[in-house]
Design a protein around this nucleic acid. Structure first.
Length: 889
RNA sequence: GCGAAAGUGGCGGAACUGGCAGACGCACCAGACUUAGGAUCUGGCGGGGCAACCCAUGGGGGUUCGAGUCCCCCCUUUCGCACCA
């Protein structure tokens, strides 16, 4: 509709004035014409197939979820990638620039509920719509390799990979507590829980449920995933840090504390009473089975300072201890509830510490001391061993806890301030003292050792004596991939009464996801309600078997999709190994920082699995990663819920695709957030109009005079006019600036500004051009180069001008212009002259003037001469080509 | 609390290695062409002052001939992480 309005306005405005009509930049018209032409050439942006003599360049933008609507974040993301792809083609690379659809997932089911449309139909219709939008913007995708993850020719390979992982013990099933979102009615991965809430429903608190789940053993690669980060120097440091934290490696020791034979003695009971804990009877009646408590610590050097053990409320031993003890059971239940609530609310860090004494004691294996065993609400079962030794003097949390419950505080690390040991009396003010650059005290034979040294020695001693060992713990958990959802890849597993868990044979892949499944909001897997799907035959015994009815997490789809792009129509294998070897790793991956952890860590894991399967040679999927900023409007991220979205369609209809995408690159450097201002789009559109009018005006005469000359040198006359010189200088400075920027900083905003400066200079030179001061051949060369410079940023206009100036070769593959240092060089430069660091004047000198000449010119400059006449010149600082600073007294 | 990034005109942003602060664009103002146009072109546009000049890059110190840029302290914003033993 907006398009119609626009063209009507143009028609009215133009009136009958043919000349004005010709000079009016009408992007709707130009872009429609080229879009149509490009649509007729499906191979327009096709990469040369492997093997190719050209150097390869694989540029990739993160594939979208087909919601049905391209939003500005997409436009920005893809504009960056598209500009780069077009530039690399012009630099002579064989560029792979594919696109696809991350098409499984919950929104399709939600839409099905809402509109009563089958997920498949909804999704495929959305893909058609978004593909149309992408083509309208003019993105240069090689659609021959398009992938759609919800189609069997893609997801069969998810199943194939799953079976390979199952064979190698990398996929396994276990009953586990899972994060359950009641709104999604499904399990969430740990990574999908944000502050205790669902990542899709940030108000919905995640519940815990016990379910049999399939897991992928990503932890087997934890160390390698961590080590690999060090080598990813083409990745933002921020992303590497986030992954490092996520993997969360900590080195320490596991120490076994034996349970003591006797239990509570009266004085401890008294202590418990004083500290306000539940009073517990002496316990020598029941002894828990198993006689030790394993504890993980990163500070084994402080073990002589341990004054209690703290167990997680869910620790198996606690269950046994509480079994015959209702009072303890009740206290533990309360602690568990506190922890659960805090976890759900996402502020586990702020939980008020509570604990309860169990009545049991454990023996510190280093010194034989009896330590009371407590249960603490701040101890997590799923980290380390679910039990800690509490060292109040040297740990913030233990200190807080010990103060509250009146537990003993034993100092075993020498407190120091600024490297100096402090007086005994001062020690208390330094507690808890957690520094590691000190010495052990009160630690038996280990006293006097440095902390680090003691950590190694004590762990070694524990190992020798058989009550512990040095160990490494990771925060990273195995990846739970089971989803009780319909719209995902069926997990290719069968359950046979006789043979148990049986994998579906390769020959029966894909396990097709049935259509016509009723989507409801009931819990459980929708597939479980389809008898035709569930009932199968066991491949081993031929008897009846039940199919797995859970589907895979959609992050499985995106963990390896970029490999499939290299060989998307392969129906014998996920891809051909030699083709992948040619294209990988991805040279440049571009997307939002919100995928810094989930997608990017899963795909690094998947890459290593495929490598170990012998399918690929690379360890890492992505050489360089670029995370672009968000699109902001009115101070908030553009989103439907904020009501501040701007539709790309509307922008394109009003200002054209070129202006819209160019604005998305012009308004901010690509790694920063972008503030969307519609007036800015209008400004870029105006600029493109100026280019258009200038080129139309001068293009025809340039076209006829051009006579095949392809270099500025050849076109330049022997003694050019000052205008000619100035224009050529600016032209080559602009080429240089943009070329260098593509190789380094990617500040496309300043590249576009540079092109604007060039155009400003050109239009300002109109009178000189009209007076014939610029030879047609030079003008032609300038126009040709300007068009090439615009090609990566504004492809529609570039194609239009390319044709207009009489060029017939393919602009997509036209060589990027080379800059000529000699032509780019300034003849005269302005040099600021300061007195005592304050700007006082500016002098103009030859670019190759000697220091002597510059100094003389500066001192002779009338203003300067007057200012220093009465003073003594102490120093003259001369920075070649930059500035003169005269220091006077 | 820990870590990272950032703070520059009315706005988005330039200034890459310390060297003319505000490129380029928006908005705004004035003018031209025009019987209206959300078009195009020209000029102006950080603040103060008639001026020479002075003051300005979140605030305060420092290093330097010279600081938006380097160092120290503080403030604000955004984003990660957050009892991980």
């Amino acid at each position: 509709m907006a398009t119609t309005e626009n063209s009507e306005a143009v028609t009215q405005a133009a009136g009958g004035d043919a000349a004005l009509q010709d000079l009016r930049y009408n992007p709707a018209d130009i872009e429609a014409r080229w879009a149509e032409r490009w649509a007729e050439q499906p191979d327009l942006y096709a990469a040369e197939p492997y093997p190719s003599a050209k150097p390869k360049y694989y540029v990739l933008e993160m594939l979208p979820y087909p919601s049905g609507q391209l939003h500005m974040g997409h436009v920005r993301n893809y504009s960056i990638g598209d500009t780069l792809a077009r530039y690399m083609w012009m630099q002579g690379y064989n560029v792979l620039h594919p696109m696809g659809w991350d098409a499984f997932g919950l929104p399709a089911e939600n839409a099905a509920l809402k509109n009563n449309t089958p997920p498949r139909q909804w999704t495929l219709a959305n893909i058609v719509a978004m593909k149309r939008q992408m083509n309208r913007v003019g993105f240069s995708y090689d659609w021959r390799n398009e992938i759609t993850t919800c189609l069997p020719d893609y997801y069969r390979w998810n199943q194939w990979f799953f079976l390979r992982m199952f064979e190698r013990g990398l996929a396994y099933r276990k009953k586990s507590k899972v994060n359950w979102c009641p709104l999604c009615a499904t399990v969430l991965a740990n990574e999908q829980v944000v502050n205790g809430c669902c990542w899709r429903h940030d108000e919905q608190i995640v519940e815990q449920r016990d379910l049999e789940q399939w897991f992928l053993r990503i932890t087997r690669y934890a160390q390698e995933l961590l080590d690999g980060l060090a080598k990813l120097d083409g990745w933002p440091e921020k992303v590497r840090t986030m992954q490092r934290n996520w993997i969360g490696r900590s080195e320490g020791a596991e120490i076994d504390f034996a349970l003591a034979d006797e239990c509570t003695v009266p004085e401890d009971e008294e202590k418990a009473r004083r500290s306000g804990t539940a009073i517990l009877p002496a316990r020598d009646d029941v002894k828990p089975s198993g006689n030790k408590i394993a504890v993980f610590t990163t500070r084994v050097d402080t073990i002589y300072g341990a004054t209690s053990l703290q167990l997680a409320p869910e620790h198996p031993l606690v269950k046994q201890m509480a079994a015959g003890d209702p009072a303890l059971a009740e206290s533990v239940a309360a602690l568990l509830e506190q922890q659960r609530k805090a976890r759900e609310a996402g502020d586990v860090g702020a939980i008020e510490k509570h604990g309860v004494f169990t009545g049991y004691y454990a023996i510190n294996p280093f010194n034989g001391e009896r330590l009371p065993v407590w249960v603490g609400n701040y101890i997590l079962l799923d980290y380390g061993t679910g039990a800690i030794m509490s060292v109040p003097a040297h740990d913030d949390r233990d200190y807080e806890f010990a103060k509250k419950y009146g537990l003993e505080i034993k100092v075993v690390i020498l407190p120091r301030r600024g490297g100096e040991a402090v007086e005994n009396g001062e020690r208390d003010s330094l507690l808890p003292f957690t520094d590691e650059d000190s010495l052990l005290i009160n630690s038996g034979e280990f006293s006097g050792l440095g902390c680090q040294e003691a950590q190694h020695k004590m762990a070694a001693v524990a190992q020798e004596q058989g009550f512990g060992k040095p160990t490494v713990t990771f925060r990273l958990k195995d990846w739970g991939i089971s989803r009780q959802r319909y719209w995902g890849t069926p997990i290719p597993m069968l359950y046979c009464e006789k043979d148990g868990i049986v994998p579906v044979p390769d020959s029966e892949l894909p396990v097709l996801l049935p259509d016509n499944v009723e989507i409801t909001q009931q819990g459980g897997s929708p597939l479980g309600r389809i008898p035709a799907f569930v009932n199968a035959t066991c491949p081993k015994c031929g008897g009846p078997a039940r199919r797995e009815t859970d589907t895979m997490d959609t992050f499985v789809d995106s963990s390896w999709y970029f490999y499939r792009y290299t060989d998307a129509r392969n129906d014998k294998a996920p891809f051909a190994t030699d083709t992948v070897a040619y294209w990988f790793p991805i040279d440049q991956y571009i997307g939002g920082v919100e995928h810094a952890i989930l997608h990017l860590i899963y795909s690094r894991f998947w890459t290593r699995v495929m490598r170990d399967l012998g399918l690929i040679e690379n360890d890492e999927p992505v050489r360089r990663l670029f995370t672009q900023g968000m699109v902001i409007r009115n101070g908030a991220k553009m989103s439907k819920s904020k009501g501040n979205v701007v539709s790309p369609d509307e922008m394109i209809a009003r200002y054209g695709a070129d202006a819209t995408r160019m604005y998305s690159l012009f308004a901010a450097p690509p790694d920063r957030d972008l503030d969307w201002q519609e007036d800015g789009v209008a400004g870029v559109s105006r600029f493109l109009g100026r280019v258009y009018r200038f080129a139309i005006k001068h293009g025809s005469s340039a076209a006829t005079s051009e006579a095949g000359s392809k270099s500025t040198r050849a076109a330049a006359p022997a003694s050019p006019s000052p205008t000619t010189q100035a224009l050529l200088r600016k032209l080559h400075q602009t080429i240089r600036k943009i070329t260098e920027d593509f190789a380094g900083r990617w500040h496309f905003n300043t590249d576009i500004a540079a092109i604007m400066e060039l155009v400003n200079l050109l239009t300002a030179a109109e009178p000189q051009i009209a007076a014939g001061e610029v030879p047609d051949a030079v003008l032609a060369e300038i126009l040709r180069t300007l068009t090439l410079l615009l090609a990566p940023f504004a492809p529609y206009l570039a194609f239009e001008l390319w044709q207009h100036i009489g060029q017939t070769d393919n602009l997509l593959r036209a060589p990027w212009p080379k800059f000529d240092e000699a032509l780019a060089k300034e003849e005269q430069i302005e040099i600021p002259v300061q007195i005592n660091g304050k700007l006082r004047s500016v002098i103009c000198v030859d670019a190759d003037a000697t220091e002597e000449q510059i100094r003389d010119a500066a001192l002779a400059e009338p203003k300067i001469a007057a200012a220093i006449a009465e003073k003594e010149v102490a120093r003259v600082i001369l920075v070649p080509r930059k500035l003169v600073n005269i220091v006077v007294k």
